[in-house]
Amino acid sequence: MAEKKLTKLVNKEIANFTVLYTKLHNYHWYVNGPHFFELHKKLEELYNEVTADMDELAERLLALGETPVATLKQYMEMTTIEEATGSENTEDMVQSVISDFEKISNELLEIIEVAEEEDPVTADMLTGMKKSFNKHAWMLRAYLSK
């Protein structure tokens, strides 16, 4: 049986959120400089939110009788997010998070369009996540502006 389009798209975001969680954790651990305390705290807030979103997506698929991806191999095969290299400076870390949030926000729009036809509850959930990613990207862009 072919995987439903909505399930496939949601699973891609579960993979993205998992990779993003790890990346945010990496940055949380390795951020340094004059804004360490501020960014350390913000990155923790972000990875906690991404984890909650990932869990919500997986549980939504389960509630629909579908199967969420759940292995590192699956995540790495499906993700569109690049891993942290471990060599980013603080400004590059923030810029990378902005880029990832914008990429995910754009991908969520595609999923929302599919979900509006197949499952309005999922569409609503994804719209809330998109709003949050957009807000965080805007705030981080403002943080980097000089």
Rank of each mutant, 00 (worst) to 15 (best):
M1G: 15
A2F: 15
E3D: 09
E3W: 05
K4R: 14
K5A: 14
L6G: 01
T7R: 02
K8P: 04
K8D: 14
L9A: 14
N11K: 05
N11F: 09
E13W: 03
A15Q: 05
F17N: 11
F17V: 00
Y21Q: 06
Y21R: 02
T22Q: 11
K23Y: 05
L24F: 04
L24H: 01
N26D: 06
N26S: 08
N26P: 03
H28D: 10
H28Q: 08
W29I: 03
W29G: 07
Y30C: 05
V31Y: 03
N32S: 13
G33M: 08
H35T: 07
F36A: 02
F37S: 06
F37K: 00
K41S: 12
K41C: 03
K42E: 11
K42A: 12
L46R: 00
N48I: 09
T51W: 13
T51C: 00
D53K: 13
D53R: 08
M54K: 08
M54V: 00
L57H: 02
L57A: 01
A58T: 05
A58I: 01
L61E: 02
L61D: 01
L61G: 04
L62Y: 05
L64D: 02
G65H: 13
E66A: 14
E66W: 13
E66C: 11
V69H: 06
T71G: 15
T71L: 14
L72F: 15
L72E: 08
K73P: 06
K73D: 15
Q74H: 11
Q74T: 07
M76S: 04
M76L: 15
E77Q: 15
M78R: 12
T79E: 00
T80N: 13
E82V: 00
E82N: 09
E83S: 10
A84H: 03
T85K: 14
S87G: 05
S87M: 12
S87V: 13
E88P: 07
T90P: 04
E91G: 05
E91T: 08
E91L: 12
E91H: 07
D92H: 12
D92Y: 09
M93G: 02
V94L: 06
V94K: 01
Q95D: 10
S96W: 03
S96A: 14
S96H: 14
V97D: 00
V97R: 02
S99V: 00
D100F: 06
D100N: 12
F101P: 03
E102S: 08
K103N: 10
K103E: 09
S105K: 10
S105F: 10
S105W: 10
N106C: 08
L109I: 13
E110I: 09
I111S: 05
I112P: 05
I112K: 06
E117F: 10
E118T: 04
E118A: 12
D119G: 04
P120M: 03
V121L: 15
V121H: 09
T122K: 02
A123W: 10
D124H: 10
L126H: 02
L126F: 09
M129L: 13
K130N: 07
K130V: 04
K131Y: 13
F133M: 12
F133H: 15
H136Q: 11
H136T: 09
A137R: 01
M139A: 07
L140W: 00
R141F: 08
A142Y: 02
A142P: 01
Y143F: 15
L144F: 06
S145E: 12
K146A: 08
K146Y: 08
